[in-house]
Design a protein around this nucleic acid. Structure first.
Lengths: 349, 349
DNA sequence: CTGTTAGCGCTTTCAT
DNA sequence: ATGAAAGCGCTAACAG
């Protein structure tokens, strides 16, 4: 799609000349129709049609006005996968709600995990950025700050000067962990990735200090507190880390967890998708939920209700909207949004 | 997010001055680092850091270069709902794949169904447009054409001069209809909306000429052919039209269809989500799938496999990618992409 | 390797 | 109601 490929651009000046008016009259015809006489207006429009002029050039308008009327959304390293994640998609829908209301577009900035990412952020023609949960050491954080445009981060990390929209992940994890772990002597966690390398692993009592995703770290800390509250040491809690947020990988991970001699009586997951995979693994092992193994999810998406999952309810859509509103300059009521526990049939207590 | 809200913009000229070099040297530092001496480069970078310069302004670059490095995607009137539609989301993922490869961003253009839509299209700073399936009479079609930028339409309608990426919906519908309708004497359709008003309705043998969504029209035409092939007149086929593509509304519609004295023995739906809703309605009525009622879906999304749905398989993701490649100027192999029937347990034959 | 020139297409300001 | 002037911030194209 080179410039040469499309026919030469028609400019406002050409339209004005053909219409026999000044450039400004032509400009007003598009921006302040009320300030132009009926006659001039129709002449300009006629000339535009004749020339095939499609309206003022958005790039030139943006340069002149100092605003692009577009919000940038950075979804993380694996853009295409982000669309497979229902949580991320709900979040986008919330942003879309607000953008539509303001007549703004939303640009999804493509991130590849390479060194070019900063460049991609820098060169995005947007008025502000919304960042989907990322890691403490993500170079994108510095890049968005360098643009000096408004930035709102969802989930984490918390960065000085930048707004944050998040629930209290630690407390929510502690609360749902308390329900899942009640009466259990062995418990396990199916976790989202610990850092941007997204390496899968299964190990007991992972070191929280090594976890680079703050949201994941906070949830693990909450699960840890819940485990300790029922007398289980963190070093005895096996954490299965998945590289992606889907049911299939969670199922494979759960199979491993359940194969242990001393199998867990409760498995807490970090998304409903993962929890569904865990439930499948439990049943495939000939065990029942919740009698043999209690399972919990996170997000309370549609599948949680369908599957009877006890889960942490939070509205990603509302949080997406809150992020957008914040970028638009509406003061955030509070950087922490609400969550609640929805009890269903996948837990015992 | 007014301009005044962010600190005054730092320009390349200021950076150049502080660095003691010409503006061009500063510009080259960002665009052609190889053409600048090590010393000049570091001076410019140091000055940029000191001033808090975040790199060349994207709007100015776009104006100067004549390219925004961004693709526009128009998802239809109800942007926020589009994200709830797994098919649309897969399509977006395919576009994202290709955009990421080209270092392009993708702007989701917000459409509200109002008169401002044309304006929103016109003012989108993008190099080309991809349109998600729409209606023959959608004003967005004229608006994207007026921009004189490359446009690719997915599904339909076919518009002179504009590229189209689609499967042969009529033939696919005929093929799956043949399977669903085999041995049935009464059949019904659960349809997507007929026009942009998105009115729900239940009526026998709807007039195809009134259908404004070409994709829906073609599918109905295919179902009609399949019905007639087994001796059922189109005027005896009840079509339940849903306003949105989700399981809940399809379920309600199917309840109505099944309540008829002469209930259908086969119900074909236009998406897997709808088919899942239909299956629920069938079971809720105390009937079995496929013995009492055969059901088919469309798209072969993950839920189709899980639910054992016979469905039309097509890769929306691949089609999204094809659309993006086409906008980028890669000649389309063929405007018609492939599809196939996946037989599972929701049909009899 | 560095600098000068000449705009990209448009709109704000201030006249008329 | 209309217009002239003055750039928005940047970079191709060409000198030096």
């Amino acid at each position: 799609m080179t410039t040469s490929e499309r026919s030469r651009r028609v400019t406002l000046a050409q339209v004005a000349e053909l219409a026999g008016v000044s450039i400004m009259t032509a400009s007003y015809t598009y921006n302040r129709p009320g300030r132009v006489s009926e006659r001039a207006r129709s002449q300009v429009l006629a000339a535009a049609t004749q020339l095939g002029y499609g309206g003022p050039d958005p790039s030139a308008q943006a340069l002149r006005r100092g605003s692009t009327r577009t919000l940038g959304v950075v979804l993380g390293e694996h853009l295409p996968y982000a669309f497979d994640d229902p949580a991320a998609v709900s979040f986008l829908a919330g942003i879309a709600d607000v953008c539509t209301g303001h007549g703004y577009g939303m640009t999804i900035v493509p991130i590849s995990g390479s060194a070019e990412d900063a460049q991609r952020i820098t060169s995005a023609a947007v008025d502000g950025f919304i960042l989907w949960t990322t890691a403490d050491d993500d170079p994108v954080l510095a890049a968005v700050q360098a643009t000096r445009r408004p930035v709102v981060i969802h989930g984490g990390p918390a960065v000085a000067q930048l707004d944050l929209v998040s629930i209290d992940n630690r407390e929510a994890a502690r609360a749902i962990g308390a329900i899942a772990f009640a009466g259990a002597r062995r418990v396990a966690v199916v976790s989202q990735p610990l850092d941007r390398s997204r390496v899968s692993s299964v190990a007991a009592g992972c070191d929280l200090a090594d976890v680079r995703f703050p949201v994941t770290r906070d949830r693990l800390a909450g699960y840890r507190a819940a485990a300790e509250a029922v007398g289980i040491a963190w070093c005895d809690v096996v954490v299965g880390v998945c590289s992606r947020n889907d049911a299939a990988e969670a199922e494979r991970t759960a199979v491993t967890l359940l194969a242990a001699a001393d199998r867990p009586e409760a498995i807490v997951a970090m998304s409903d998708q993962q929890a569904v995979g865990v439930v499948r693994a439990v049943r495939a092992a000939g065990l029942t939920v919740p009698e043999d193994v209690a399972v919990t999810g996170w997000d309370d998406t549609a599948i949680a209700a369908r599957s009877g999952l006890t889960t942490v309810a939070q509205s990603l859509r509302e949080q997406g909207a809150a992020c957008a509103r914040t970028v638009f300059g509406q003061a955030l009521d509070s950087c922490t949004t609400s969550w609640s526990i929805v009890r269903r049939s996948s837990t015992r207590s």
